[in-house]
Design a protein around this nucleic acid. Structure first.
Lengths: 252, 252
DNA sequence: CGTTATCTTGACGTACATCAAATGTCGTGG
DNA sequence: CCACGACATTTGATGTACGTCAAGATAACG
């Protein structure tokens, strides 16, 4: 599916062709490597776009003609087996560069789980930018290195951690996303469903749900609703996530 | 542990400071991006080194001062949990560039499982090379993208495949390493132990062993010894690896 | 505000882990 | 070269964490 011809809405910044200069996501993206003086160049290389909730905008196996920079919303990245088994490889948020794990064809699919705004690069346009701005290529390499370290951490989780450790790891990671201070008792938004969490952690919906319930019973978290968790004991969760067993020493 | 001060043997090419020009591994490494005219530069940036079987030359958590290019032998890359649970994230062979998944400290450990020859870069030396030779940085980014796609494939394996599918996937991947023609009935060397395979696939030694036995009983492979497998039915293995269930249609 | 999907909880099943012991492999030194 | 010992592998018996099936409760959306 070629995103540029499938009827997705394109939104333009009114009265300007330089959306990049006002982009709130820029500091946290690969675009931060571009000098402010060159932002017009950057703006010409990208097309801002809106993806409605539920829409697939990358399909595994399609020719990888475009790369994307998420500027708002959340994206589910996943791979499928022929019988429908699904592994979610990550959730992409503001600042995430989509298209690193690419060969000639996309090796994963991407669906917006919230309304998403993103900037689209053509493959050739990005290549030109990278050739003209080595700092951008350098930044992209750093990003890739980070992704890779994260992926290996996830392999440890999927291969060797218990359900409880997996969910604790997930919650700790999510709590680091919106760092609004307060090491204890912080609110974490979970835009994804239990099914998404299950497919990310290599579990089933039921096991995820039961494990949430147990973490709550252990006073490690509170569950306001299915999509909001309050962390009551971050240190305890971190201990479990790291595989220490839940040494009750850290619990209060 | 700083590899440059721990007594590892360093082997030098006799009568020459340009080992790179004769390096058999070069075409398959990131070094292939360097123009033959600049090989002397490359040679000065690297230190060839020998690592004996069983030796740890990267320890998770140590400052990431060096990067490595494997020129021969096999390396086990892994992460540990505090209680000793181990996840092997990959096996590095000739041509593998070690140090992509790095932050300030190494995020994994590396041990030679066979005698290994490698070329060591200092962090600063590599950075200088990458700045001077953009083609090398470009190549490294491609390598990282490939690694990432492989890592995500492994997440699918660890999160969603059965023991049988995991082992089939592993064997198919290994059979692609030494591509000496013949799509059917090819010999695959497995320098790693059953324990290594288990920790790579998120299983136990016993399950790996039992699954090998069953694949043999199903005439998909032959087991000459613990470290050599002959693939009797590659298409069948590939079907299983891909999650088709073993549709007996492909078996003969 | 009703319809539908998502989430929770319970009862039960199973693929793989654990525990245990026999067998095989390989490096080492006599 | 062969025999020993240490370790790796295989195989069997049993256990369990998590999956599957099922039903009710809650939340989301038009």
């Amino acid at each position: 599916m070629d995103i540029s011809h499938n009827g997705l809405a394109e939104h333009r910044v009114v009265g300007s062709v330089e959306p990049c200069s006002h982009c709130v996501a820029r500091p946290s993206t690969v675009c931060a490597a571009i000098d402010p003086a060159d932002l017009e160049r950057l703006a010409r290389a990208t097309t801002p776009q809106m993806v409605p909730r539920g829409q697939t905008f990358i399909s595994e196996g399609d020719p990888a003609d475009h790369f994307f920079n998420i500027t708002s919303g959340t994206v589910r990245l996943f791979k499928l087996l022929p019988d429908g088994r699904r592994q979610i490889t990550g959730f992409a948020r503001m600042g995430y560069f989509l298209g690193l794990a690419v060969r000639d064809a996309y090796t994963f699919s991407a669906v917006a789980i919230e309304p998403v705004h993103l900037c689209r690069f053509s493959r050739s346009g990005l290549r030109t930018m990278l050739d003209d701005f080595p700092a951008m290529e350098r930044r992209l390499l750093e990003t890739a290195a980070n992704e890779l370290a994260t992926a290996q951490e996830q392999m440890l989780l999927l291969g060797r951690k218990t359900a409880r450790e997996r969910l604790a790891s997930f919650l700790v990671a999510q709590s680091c996303i919106g760092q609004h201070g307060m090491r204890e008792s912080r609110r974490v938004a979970l835009p994804m469903t239990r099914g998404d969490i299950a497919d990310y952690l290599g579990l089933t919906i039921e096991t995820v749900s039961r494990t949430f319930t147990k973490l709550k019973a252990d006073h490690l978290i509170d569950l306001s609703g299915p999509h909001e968790v309050t962390i009551r004991n971050l240190a305890g969760l971190e201990g479990i996530a790291g595989g220490l067993g839940d040494s009750k020493a850290l619990l209060f």
